[in-house]
Structure formats: C-alpha cells, structure tokens
C-alpha cells in the first residue's frame, strides 16, 4: 500500500485534471461565442432585417427573406409537432400508463429523439418531396415537425408523471370525466413543464440545417408560397459559407450570430421558466 501522502498526491493530480477539463469545457463555449460576436457583430445593422439576401458580388443586402422563411417554417413545424407530441405524451403518462405498448412507444420515441436529423431529411424527401414533385416549405416544416414530436413527447410524459396522483383522484371523486381531469387538472399542474418542453423543441429546430437541405432547398428571393422552395437562415448560411464571396461570408457570420443568440436565449428562458415553477 502506498503511503498516505502518495495517495493524497495522486488524488490531487486527478482532481486538478478534472478542474482543467472543466475550465477547457467552459472555455469552448466562450471561444465560440466570442468568435461569433467578433465576426458577426460588425455586419449587424438595420439592413440585415430589411433587405433581401444579395446576389454574389454585391456590397449590401440583408437576411430578411431567410429570417422570414425560418420563422414561418419553425412556427408551422412546431404548430404541427407540438400538439401531436403533447397528446402522445398524455397517452403515455395517463391513458396508456399500464398498456403493454407504452414501453415500446417510449423506447422508439427515445431513439427518434437522438436519431440523425439528416435521416429525417431523407425520409421527408421520399415521403413528401418525391410525391409532390417539388421542394417546398411544407416539406421542410414537416421535417421539423418530425423532429419536434419526440422532444415534446418526452418532456410532456415526464412532466405529467410528476403531477401527484392525489390531485387526479380528488378530481375524479368530484365526478369529472377522465379527459377533464387531464385537461383541467393535470395539464394545469404541469403547465410550466409543458411550455418548457415546447420552448426546448423550438430551440432544437431553430438551427436545424440537415433536414432542410433537400426538403426546402433555399431561395435567393422573397417567397411566401408554402409549396415552393423558401429561403431560410440555416441553409442560407450553409450556401454562403461554401462561397468565396466576402460579402456573403460576412452575412453568414451575422446570420450565425442571430441563430445562436436566438437558440441560446430560448434555451436559457426555457430553463428559467421550468425552474421558477419548481421552486414554488
């Protein structure tokens, strides 16, 4: 057995390494945020929000059509995915709590939660783009909805399972039907958690690029037609990075800064929102 001093030394060294790992881990975040601010902030101006994406070689331009497209597709995607996710989570936590299928559905849902998003893109390409014979904003929104569903199912189930059964029993004892117990009592008790789940889902799809690459493509111009390719921020950034045009590169950095700030603030507010309710 080594001496106590030697053991203590070994422990100190390992713990110092752990401290270093933590410092480096946190440093990555700040390094990335710093480069985004450094490269993206100078290009940020009012015209970013009022002008369209420019053709190559021009000196001006903004991201208006891309921002609009991203917003529209995120809203539609979450609008389709979140209700399905909440209902499915309700089934797992309430009606199907003792069903034999529930563990199977939960398991498949957990796998879909981490499935590569590019596979979702391939799926929607085969299921929507090929039959419709056109890349479209609808296809992109559906791809996002497929990504939203598992996220919302998971949080909804978790949050509903946290609601004490005594609440449900009290409501049932008053003679309320099951669906009223769930909608008026369980949903209300779990409201903060449910909203947190939806916010996290928005944050998750806000920056998704891979499933949009060959479902919506992108669009150089303003397009509000949901059945046509639509400009969107992630794919626009993707296309701008792959091009030597200096103006496009600046716009790509600015767009990246906007996406990151939006996604991270959604993440943080979802956490604050979820925590504020827990504390009460």
């Amino acid at each position: 057995m080594p001496s106590y001093a030697a053991r203590q030394r070994k422990s100190t060294i390992v713990m110092a390494l752990c401290l270093m790992a933590t410092i480096i881990g946190v440093a990555w975040l700040f390094l990335i945020l710093f480069s985004l601010l450094w490269n993206g902030l100078p290009g940020l101006s009012l015209s970013t929000f009022t002008e369209m994406t420019p053709p190559p070689g021009s000196q001006s331009g903004g991201l208006l059509n891309a921002l609009y497209g991203s917003l529209v597709m995120t809203v539609i995607g979450v609008g389709i995915g979140a209700p399905i996710g909440i209902l499915a989570g309700t089934y797992l936590a309430e009606y199907g709590r003792h069903s034999k299928m529930t563990p199977v559905i939960r398991f498949i849902n957990d796998i879909l939660l981490s499935a590569p998003s590019i596979i979702i893109g391939l799926f929607v390409y085969g299921a929507v783009v090929v039959p419709m014979r056109s890349f479209s904003a609808v296809a992109g929104s559906l791809a996002l909805a497929v990504i939203v569903i598992p996220v919302v199912v998971r949080t909804t189930e978790d949050m509903l399972l946290l609601v004490p059964n005594t609440l449900r029993e009290a409501a049932s004892a008053l003679g309320l039907p099951r669906s009223y117990v769930i909608r008026k009592v369980a949903y209300r008790a779990a409201r903060a958690g449910l909203i947190t789940g939806v916010l996290l889902a928005v944050a998750r799809v806000g920056g998704e690029t891979a499933p949009l690459l060959f479902t919506v493509l992108s669009n150089q111009f303003w397009s509000a037609n949901l059945l046509k390719p639509m400009a969107n921020l992630p794919v626009t950034i993707n296309n701008f990075i792959n091009n030597p045009d200096a103006n496009w590169k600046h716009l790509a950095w600015t767009g990246a800064l906007l996406i990151t700030v939006a996604v991270l603030s959604l993440n943080i507010s979802a956490r604050i929102f979820g925590a504020s309710k827990d504390g009460r």
């Binding site: 985004l36 690029t209 790509a252 990246a256 996604v263 943080i268």
Partner: peptide, 13 residues
C-alpha cells in the same frame, strides 16, 4: 449550452 448551439455553427466555427 454547448449542446444547444446548432451544429451548423460548429461547422462554420
């Protein structure tokens, strides 16, 4: 939050 940063940002960075 590192997990929250979209993957295209990692690619760009």
């Amino acid at each position: 939050l590192l997990a929250g940063i979209p993957s295209i940002i990692y690619g760009m960075w």
